[in-house]
Write a protein that binds this DNA or RNA. Structure first.
Lengths: 353, 353
DNA sequence: TTCATTAATGTAAACGGTTACATTTGTGAA
DNA sequence: TTCACAAATGTAACCGTTTACATTAATGAA
């Protein structure tokens, strides 16, 4: 159906080589010849077939992108960063998501590999032990991790999750909290959550605070609600400060706490992780440890692309994180059932329409 | 480097045809032969090259996706819907974004076409007059619009934006508002915003309300802030009810209003459009007209895929929208400088850390 | 056992580009 | 004008599959 380079060659009365050279600008072609070729291309509406080209050159000018979830803004941000960088250098993106499932990681990487992407940018559940990464290494397809914890011989761009977790503990301490807790997604599906936890624990220990209680739960639905219910059964011992392993989780947690008539931050302070944009518009606005997601995506893409054009790359890039204060984290107060700020808040909410 | 079908054939002592048939399961291959082929594949770590296959079959099993912005959750949701559907049917996604710019629409579609995607799912600035769509039609590459207003001969999945806009006017009327206004992104880059405006105007007219004031502004930065400042110069005439053409815009608007000491919803009510998930967690929670983004993406993908396997498709799918009440839209009050709820609110905010 | 039929396998030509190498054309010096 | 050399262009093999068509092997009836 579509015109091929041979059609163009015939119409312009030149060889396919000349057309190819004209299209790609790889060699000079004489003015008059160029003119004829240009006309033929226009008349035939010729569009070079990237499939043919890829087969011939054995590179596709495309990058695979693998993220756990498309709906989580933290990953969209990274993808936005990747997109800019890739577009600039003429690369296309093949996007896939895994739902945090290592099996899916494998299957999408398999697809990417079959499609012969030139490189892959990805976030995996556990880089220490990842079949997907093994496939990539085995196929000698360059890749770059984003968000994951650095591992030997594995290019990664991330933040210092341990230090960041530690700093969260310090923030709570400054606000006078002593009963700390953490709500996290499954550690098996998020090595960074694990690192943040370790940092948090370490921070608490350094500050001579009692060891925080750690709760692992799935992000959505009953599991999380049950966990919180259990945790806040006994208000006299429950944590007054909760570190959530990511912002989306923090938002859910705040919602569930409110449902149980526990007010944030009057009774319980919450700090999230990621720094998704919208967080600052919430009520209460979300205190969080911000990582530069877009920059991380861009940096990873830039490194990978450099590698693809023969350059050298850094193995690990640790970008700076920064704490963003918010209303969800306040001074430690009393955690008692009859707390009054709580009442006033809960009557004010849900008043409309 | 990587093993080819010929390497496998040689090692298994069969012809390439047999290997191909075994890999694709298109013909029976005798048990013993199959065994040999399977072994050879495993030993050589053979992975069929999709590029070669595509060249041969002239389809790529890939879909192009074109959205205005990756960071806007409304589009991510649609992409999530598309991803599920595509993955199920073994299709890969090539994702691109346009920044609402028709020039970029053209250039990304060009790239997609060169890559010979089997079909394209996209949201354009103006489907009535789109070079990108013309290219697609010209190349006879099937496509399906998402979010855009339906146009002759152009498959689209969307909501009834006019009706929805009208209903927003009605919601404001129910709350007792009479001075209505709309803040919208550029109509030239969003046909749906235009439709929503038209519906809004129509709704107001039906209700015998004064014609709403319409403000067109860029989403971010100074432009929007200036617009709002001008609009709220004279509080005695300024609108008490503001319809924003999308949720992200509504969030910005609420922020800027607050900056000017105008409280939402006590002085001004705001209703958004899209129904992004996070909206319900804001303060004030965002009243909005919800469209089923994920379903829209999934439906478009399903239709397009059906079309690709020879089936017939519906030209236009109008999915149901629904109003989600929220705290940002309340009963009409007085719009005066000395309004007290405003003061109390503004001192309460930004109190932490 | 032989032969007609069917099942399994093989051969080789596409698919649409790129590019090493060969050939032709153009240029300026002698 | 002739010739050496450079610039422009052409020829054809190759990239890794699929698949129409040809061939060979297996099967079962006579």
């Amino acid at each position: 159906m579509a015109a091929t380079i041979r059609d163009v060659a015939r119409k312009a009365n030149v060889s396919v080589a000349t057309v190819s050279r004209f299209v790609n600008g790889t060699h000079k072609v004489r003015g008059e010849t160029a003119e004829r070729v240009k006309e033929a291309i226009a008349e035939l509406d010729f569009r070079p077939n990237a499939v043919g080209r890829s087969l011939s050159t054995s590179h596709t000018k495309s990058l695979g992108v693998v993220i756990p979830s498309i709906s989580n803004p933290v990953f969209s941000e990274a993808v936005a960063g990747i997109t800019n960088e890739a577009k600039q250098q003429g690369y296309s993106l093949m996007l896939t998501s895994t739902n945090y499932d290592p099996e899916e990681e494998q299957s999408v990487v398999e697809t990417l590999l079959e499609n012969r992407v030139d490189g892959v940018l990805l976030t995996v559940a556990d880089p220490e032990n990842s079949a997907a990464l093994d496939m990539l290494r085995n196929a000698r397809t360059p890749f770059f991790l984003i968000y994951n914890q650095p591992v030997e011989q594995t290019p990664t761009v991330t933040v210092d999750n341990v230090l960041a977790g530690q700093e969260v503990a310090e923030q709570f301490a400054v606000l006078g909290h002593t009963r700390l807790g953490m709500i996290s997604g499954r550690f098996t599906t998020s090595d960074r959550a694990l690192a943040r936890k370790n940092g948090f624990l370490k921070g608490a220990a350094n500050l001579k605070l009692p060891a925080p209680v750690i709760c692992e739960a799935d992000h959505e639905g009953r599991a999380l609600e049950q966990t919180l219910k259990a945790l806040y059964q006994d208000l006299s011992t429950a944590p007054t400060a909760l570190f959530c392993s990511n912002d989306l989780l923090a938002i859910s947690v705040i919602g569930y706490l409110r449902k149980q008539d526990i007010s944030v931050p009057q009774q319980v302070s919450v700090i999230g992780f990621d720094g998704i944009d919208v967080g600052s518009h919430f009520y209460p606005s979300l205190a969080t440890m911000v990582q530069p997601s877009q920059e991380m995506g861009a940096a990873a893409a830039k490194q990978l692309l450099a590698r693809l054009s023969g350059g050298d790359i850094k193995e690990a890039l640790i970008l700076p994180h920064v704490f963003r204060p918010g209303e969800s984290a306040g001074p430690a107060g009393k955690l008692t059932p009859a707390s009054s700020p709580n009442l006033s808040q809960n009557t004010r909410r849900r008043s409309t329409t």
